[in-house]
Amino acid sequence: MSLHADIAVRRNGFTLDLKLDVDPGETVAILGPNGAGKTTLLRALAGLVPLHGRVELDGDVLDDSATGRHVPTERRRVGLVFQDHVLFPHMSVLQNVAFGLKADATRSAREWLERAGLGEKADAMPRELSGGQAQRVALIRTLATRPRLLLLDEPLSALDVTIRAEVRRDLSRQLAGFEGVRILVTHDPLEAIALADRLVILEQGTVVQTGTPSGVTAQPRSRFVADLAGVNLLRGHAHHDHIELDGGAVIAAPDSGEGDVFAVIHPRAVALYLSRPEGTPRNVWRAKAEDLDLQGERVRVRLTGEVPLVAEVTPSAVRELRLDRGAEVWAAVKATEISVYRA
């Protein structure tokens, strides 16, 4: 089972325009900032919003604007799981799961619930469930209809952090046993990395990057991905041993080639000094600490200046440097710590 979509959706001034191919058995995570069109993409694939282009699932054409073909949602065999469960509030858990089943609905629904360890909740009403249980029931309700395409719209983001891990494990197990195409929309990189084989980064309605989670985070191609990976992303024009940044600054980076490039600097590779350091580092800039943020055992320092960077230092370094908001420092990066790739 595979999905091939090449679609454009226009909605009040916003255009979603992308091509998406998902292989059998693959879980693709759609990642992107708010307003990137993630939910619109899912709704389009589910047949809930009109689109231009073509959607083909498992050899069946679901949409083709060239021939005017449009298979309505209820006959697409797509499963849609929402951010908050959207269980029917007037039906019991069992009735909710049985809703989409045809033959032998009640018995089959009970079996699905029991397999998921939710058998004793069969007669409960949705309002009596915890958030995690409700979302697991919602997933079962969808999987029980044996969809060919499973669309998960931020399935964990409405849950408390404390139970998110548990539901994610359950989701991961359920996904492993599901044969159709899986598409997960999320803005949580952890969720994407834990559940997906491939990431598709969606920004302003188009795909800006796609690849394995490690591949995407190793070579970010947008601010959004760089923030996800927690690295500094710079863009400029390379001239063999140095890069002229878009802002005008020059950084030294050997073997950069010639042309437009991205340069990634890990925050831990940014060293901070009170006075200009002597010796090896060739990339030294004056900077001003704008913001300090304690994260775990490290302190992230946001720097402004010629080259805006985020540095990650130890709390003891913060004390030694008497670092505070507004402090003037020197930032140094070894040329060998800069990873450069084509833009």
Binding site: L48, V78, G79, V86, F88, T145
Partner: peptide, 29 residues
């Protein structure tokens, strides 16, 4: 009414009639 109830019902394979009788109408009670 939250339209997603009806969308969820359709995604579960319910026809327009079934959505109306079993989801819309009870929620409108």
């Amino acid at each position: 009414l939250d339209r997603r109830y009806e969308e969820a019902a359709r995604a579960l394979g319910a026809s327009g009639w079934k959505v109306f009788l079993r989801v819309t109408l009870p929620l409108l009670r």
